[in-house]
Simulated assay, not measured.
Amino acid sequence: MAAEDEDGVSTRITPQRLTRPALLLGFWTLIALSYTVSAGLSSISEGRAAHWPRAMVWNFADFYLWMLLVPLIASLGRHTAGHGWRRFVAVHVPASLCIALAHVVVHMAIFWSTCGAGSMPVSTFGAFLRMEFAYVYHFALLLYWVILAVLRGLESQRRLRDERLRNAELASQLAQSQLRTLRVQLQPHFLFNTLNAISALALADPIQARLMIARLSDLLRLTLEERHALEVPLARELELLRCYLEIQQVRFQDRLSTHIDVAMDTVHAAVPSMILQPLVENALRHGLLDKPEPGQLQIVSRREGGELYLRVDDDGLGLPEGAAEGLGLGNTRARLKVLFGEAASVVLARKAEGGTRVELRFPFREHVTESAA
């Protein structure tokens, strides 16, 4: 449904915009009906005839007037919120007296003009007003304060909900900022180490050095494509890792063999971008680089219940005694903590048969692309 404003511009009236007024009208109508039925049944129980039209006019005029007054009471409530009890009393005591008085006069005028005196022992509106004023005015005052209390309760609930939403948004923004900072730390660190490896081959083996530069170009392209992504599918992370391993294969030649064992039900799992590369780099630099004989590197992924399990194994020289946690592992631990809190774990251990093992566990969830979200 559409309507035109004063300038002739069509304004679409959506069902959502009509829902709240319809609910309010239904609420006050139900109250008026319940009071009408109660008044009629009360008359019948006392042996008197039930005057249904008069009861309907009285109750519907009463509660529909309050429905129209709710926005005014809500506005007064908002203007006194958070300003102390003195302002609250100074505004609402005279407001309740005046609004209740206006409501009583209008309500009784509508009823008198519509239904007249009926069987009441009065013949003028003034006499009718004096007869009913004390009871009706007392009820109007009471209803003003009940409406005000309900409105302030709903407003407080809304403010609390909005505050929780703002806090959640701020926490999310902080977490994303921390993740980006940690991810940016990895890029120059990784690039510096790779350039060092190329530099070492530049004079000794220029052909291999050029091959490493070509592989580095491919790797940087993949990295730049995902520069804004905090999480990527595991398949994308493995694509970047394979490119990195091709560079290292040029460096290690026949001294390095790699095995990637990825379960098919994990390839679409969401993982932090560049989560595996620093772990593999640590295995190569600290475990396999100084090993005189050929070494093996293994990357494993499995889904274990509601968790994703990632493992990086090497059969290198192993962890030296008292070795401190380096940038790569510390960065990985920090990123998983920001994303998953206590639900994530990072375990670094010496293997009994020699070498090092790093195990990551964190909640499993499918990666959702922006176009599918």
Rank of each mutant, 00 (worst) to 15 (best):
A2L: 08
A3M: 14
E6W: 11
D7Y: 11
D7P: 00
V9I: 06
I13P: 08
T14M: 07
P15Q: 03
P15I: 01
L18Q: 06
T19W: 14
T19D: 09
P21G: 09
P21V: 02
L23M: 13
L24Y: 12
G26K: 04
T29V: 03
L33W: 05
Y35Q: 14
V37W: 09
S38I: 01
L41V: 13
E46N: 08
A49E: 15
A49M: 11
A50H: 07
A50K: 03
W52Y: 12
P53W: 04
R54I: 06
M56C: 09
W58I: 04
F60M: 04
V70H: 06
P71E: 13
L72P: 10
S75P: 04
R78A: 13
H79N: 08
G84T: 02
F88D: 08
A90Q: 13
H92Y: 04
H92N: 13
L101R: 01
V105E: 10
H107T: 05
M108C: 03
A109G: 15
I110V: 14
M120A: 15
V122P: 12
F133D: 08
F133K: 00
A134D: 13
A140P: 09
A140K: 03
W145T: 02
I147E: 10
A149E: 10
V150P: 08
R152M: 15
G153E: 09
L154D: 13
S156K: 10
R161N: 14
E169L: 12
S177A: 15
Q178W: 03
L179W: 02
L179R: 04
L182E: 14
R183P: 03
Q185M: 10
Q185N: 13
L186N: 13
Q187S: 08
P188N: 06
A197N: 11
I198E: 02
I207C: 07
I207K: 11
A209Q: 00
L219N: 00
L220D: 00
R221E: 00
L222N: 01
L222I: 01
H228I: 00
H228C: 06
V232R: 00
E237Q: 06
L240D: 01
R242D: 12
Y244N: 01
E246K: 00
Q248M: 11
V250A: 01
F252D: 05
S257T: 04
S257A: 05
S257M: 02
I260V: 12
A263D: 15
A263R: 06
V267C: 11
P272Y: 07
L279Y: 04
D290L: 00
Q296K: 00
S301M: 05
R302Q: 15
E304Y: 01
G306Y: 01
E307N: 12
L308V: 11
Y309W: 11
R311G: 14
G318F: 05
L327E: 11
L327W: 03
T332I: 08
E342M: 01
A344G: 10
L348H: 05
L348V: 07
A352F: 02
G354M: 07
G354Y: 06
T356D: 09
V358D: 07
F364C: 06
R365P: 06
H367W: 15
